[in-house]
Simulated scan of single mutants.
Amino acid sequence: MPDSLKDRVKAAAGADEPQPEPPPVTDLAVHDSARQWLLRRQTFFTDALPRHVDRAHFMAVAQARMEDLKKCTPASIHTALLACARFGLEPDGRQAAIVPYGDVATFQPMYEGYIELMYRHPRVDSVHFGWVRENDAWDYTPTEPSPRDFYHKPRVDLSDEERGKVILAYAFAWIDGRRSQVIILNRSQAEAIRNKFSKAYKKAESNGKRDSAWHTDFDAMWAKSAVLRLRKVVPTSTELAELLQADDDLDDAQTAPPVIRGTVITRDDQTATGEQPSTSSAWPETTQPGSATTDEAGEQ
Score class of each variant (00 low, 15 high):
198 S>P: 02
117 L>G: 05
239 E>G: 03
140 Y>I: 11
292 A>E: 06
12 A>H: 06
91 P>A: 10
188 S>L: 07
224 K>E: 01
84 C>G: 08
288 Q>V: 15
120 R>Q: 15
279 T>I: 12
265 I>W: 11
172 F>C: 00
223 A>Y: 01
33 S>D: 05
272 A>L: 13
4 S>W: 02
264 V>D: 10
95 Q>Y: 13
113 G>L: 06
252 D>K: 14
126 S>F: 13
97 A>L: 10
44 F>G: 02
114 Y>S: 05
108 Q>P: 01
265 I>P: 05
177 G>A: 04
145 P>R: 10
108 Q>R: 15
127 V>K: 03
133 R>F: 01
280 S>L: 05
39 L>K: 12
111 Y>M: 11
280 S>Y: 03
50 P>H: 06
134 E>Q: 12
182 V>E: 02
202 K>F: 03
16 D>K: 12
268 D>I: 15
109 P>G: 12
211 D>Y: 04
145 P>I: 10
20 P>H: 03
12 A>L: 13
51 R>W: 09
130 G>T: 02
244 L>I: 08
272 A>W: 09
98 I>K: 03
23 P>C: 05
14 G>I: 01
280 S>T: 14
253 A>F: 07
291 S>Y: 14
158 L>M: 13
276 Q>A: 15
202 K>N: 10
226 A>I: 03
68 D>K: 12
246 A>L: 04
16 D>G: 08
249 D>P: 03
155 R>F: 03
299 E>W: 11
92 D>T: 11
222 W>I: 03
61 V>P: 05
119 Y>M: 14
136 D>R: 01
84 C>Y: 09
108 Q>I: 14
49 L>P: 00
271 T>K: 05
276 Q>W: 09
180 S>N: 02
193 I>F: 02
158 L>W: 12
74 P>Q: 06
147 P>N: 10
130 G>M: 01
10 K>S: 07
260 I>E: 01
21 E>D: 08
21 E>G: 09
140 Y>C: 07
85 A>Q: 06
25 V>E: 10
82 L>P: 01
97 A>M: 07
113 G>Q: 03
50 P>G: 09
34 A>G: 13
167 I>T: 07
137 A>S: 08
135 N>D: 04
225 S>F: 00
34 A>T: 07
3 D>E: 09
62 A>Y: 05
209 K>I: 14
209 K>Q: 11
150 F>H: 04
200 A>Q: 06
14 G>V: 01
255 T>M: 08
25 V>G: 05
294 T>G: 08
1 M>Q: 07
55 R>C: 08
81 L>N: 05
56 A>T: 14
117 L>A: 08
24 P>H: 04
264 V>T: 14
271 T>M: 02
132 V>H: 00
187 R>N: 02
214 W>V: 12
166 V>E: 00
44 F>A: 11
182 V>T: 12
15 A>E: 06
187 R>M: 03
122 P>A: 11
102 G>M: 10
86 R>H: 13
41 R>N: 15
73 T>E: 11
182 V>N: 01
7 D>V: 15
14 G>A: 05
230 L>Q: 01
208 G>L: 13
31 H>M: 11
226 A>E: 00
97 A>H: 07
55 R>F: 04
76 S>C: 04
27 D>I: 11
255 T>Y: 13
255 T>V: 08
118 M>I: 06
29 A>H: 14
215 H>V: 10
237 S>M: 04
152 H>S: 07
54 D>I: 04
6 K>T: 04
207 N>F: 11
177 G>K: 06
5 L>A: 13
63 Q>W: 02
78 H>V: 07
233 V>S: 12
